[in-house]
């Protein structure tokens, strides 16, 4: 079924020459996997037509649908700028942030398929229950566990020591990685890549002394050894974190018994 309430008006550029300074809009079909727990037994794809510019984001398309066509469309977003981690979703079959995916990077001649992330309980449309994901993160003790007496000033760290875990500090807890993982889809108990990244952030921090406890958690049955190195997490991370590398480093730390 195709709902088309927006009239499609292309920019009123004179047909004389292809003036590059005037951006051209175009109509794109956005196919959203809908689900309303009150009425639906199954999810279904619903098509919307929206007018977009090449520089628009998928999030803009969702806004247009929600604000102009169907107010019942449900999704999470907050910052709109890739920092709050609210709007991870499957865009054309790959986990992406809607706010960081531009029209010009998608094939707009075909419908853009938008679905909720996989492996977490679906609540409505593009919204899933993130609680199991956050619970896994909490389990790896994601806070600084310093040793010794509290210093009077800040805890000093060399640039080299800081660089050691720089990559894993970038995580915004969007769940794009964990819900792209085939192991997580079939085994919801697996801690998942994000929790390992979160643990890595502190395990390799020279100011921290809780590595042993975190490594113990990750050495469990549902820990790092579940990882099958499919690289889906690394490919999905909107922050470009080398997740599989971080997981490999945790595996190494466990095997060698040192960091």
């Amino acid at each position: 079924m195709r709902k088309s309430k927006t009239a499609v008006v292309n920019t009123q550029s004179p047909a004389t020459d292809s003036d590059l300074s005037i951006p051209q809009s175009f109509t794109v079909t956005v196919s959203v996997r809908r689900f309303n727990p009150d009425v639906d037994q199954e999810t279904y794809l619903q098509d919307f037509e929206v007018e977009m510019y090449a520089t628009d984001r998928v999030l803009d398309a969702l806004h247009k649908i929600k604000w102009e066509q169907d107010g019942s469309l449900s999704f999470r977003r907050s910052c709109g700028h890739g920092i709050c981690g609210s709007d991870a979703m499957r865009i054309n079959g790959l986990n992406r942030l809607a706010c960081k995916t531009l029209m010009k990077d998608l094939d707009v001649t075909k419908p853009i398929i938008i679905e909720a992330i996989k492996g977490l309980p679906l609540e409505k449309d593009l919204i899933v229950d993130m609680e199991p994901f956050f619970a896994a993160y909490r389990e790896v003790l994601p806070f600084l566990m310093p040793s010794g007496a509290e210093p009077e000033r800040e805890r000093i760290q060399s640039q080299e020591d800081r660089a050691r875990f720089d990559d894993s500090t970038k995580c915004i807890l969007c769940a794009a990685c964990t819900t792209s993982c085939p192991v997580f889809w079939t085994d919801n108990q697996y801690f998942g890549p994000q929790a390992i990244v979160g643990a890595h952030r502190f395990i390799f921090d020279s100011r921290d002394s809780g590595a042993a406890s975190r490594l113990e958690v990750l050495n469990s049955k549902e820990g790092v050894w579940r990882c099958r190195t499919t690289f889906n997490c690394t490919d999905a991370c909107p922050r470009g974190i080398q997740i599989t590398q971080a997981i490999a480093e945790v595996k190494q730390a466990l095997i060698r018994g040192k960091i």
């Binding site: 689900f35 499957r90 079959g93 679906l122 085939p182 190195t229 499919t230 889906n232 490919d235």
Partner: peptide, 19 residues
């Protein structure tokens, strides 16, 4: 639990080499 959308994840080389 609500049904999880069943569309195939597209993945890349890493995922397909694992499959």
């Amino acid at each position: 639990m609500a049904p999880i959308p069943a569309t195939l994840y597209r993945g890349r080389e890493g995922m397909w080499s694992w499959v």
